[in-house]
Amino acid sequence: MKILVTAKRVEDPESKIKVKPDGSGIVQEGLKYKINPFDEIGVEEGLRLAAKHGGEVVVVSIGGKEVQEQLRHALAMGAHRAVWVNHTGTLDQLALAGLLQKVAEKEKPDMVILGKQSIDDDQNQVGQYLAEFLGWSQATFASKVESLESEQEKNKVPALQVGADGKTVRVVREVDNGLATLECALPAVVTTDLRLNLPRYASLPGIMKAKSKPIEELTPEKLGVDVTPKIQVLKMSSPPPRKAGIKVPDVATLVDKLRNEAKAV
């Protein structure tokens, strides 16, 4: 089976994000970049599916030259080849999904696995847009019943269950108040939640091999997608800071403060 996975370049989740004084964006200086953690979970799931069912994992990223670093990361984890849609400048979710649609139509995968959201703009939209654009089945927030410390996880068993006929996939979804299970006809779009799996490390030989794996370059023009943004970010600001708190010596003081100062109980 062929699986298309995404590898968006985002700020390291551990880094401190600061807004520029003029509100035009965030301060880029000193930031580190990584593959979107949810996408990394998608790459891992793709690799597990390919290991179990055979086939190929193709990773795609959209952005300037620098996104090759994230593609190489996915290739080092074990993805077979990469597609790079070369574009600098802002892209909104409509544009991203439009580009991915064209890549998917070209690659004809059995499944596209994306992170449920990227940790920079936190929109949580692209997978759903893509499924609609392609007219495919969609299962967002894929998770699993077993914990991340289970035997299944240690043995790298894929959580997405492909039917015996290879025509469907069962997905356990993390939703409000429980887990919902869907059966999607393939091809399908799946977006990953946090506890689908623990992504593997890129091994040293994997990183060395990734250097010579192919990266195909495409552009929005070649794909015929109009990427004019339909979402304009007018201004960014920092959330109002919390006023400094205090340490209380004991429970009695805490209860008193909560009742009389914060009026929270």
Partner: peptide
């Protein structure tokens, strides 16, 4: 290079 940083990153994560 990108791959040198990737090696460093994977070692850092393991450490």
């Amino acid at each position: 290079s990108d791959s040198q940083r990737a090696l460093q990153e994977t070692a850092r994560k393991f450490a």
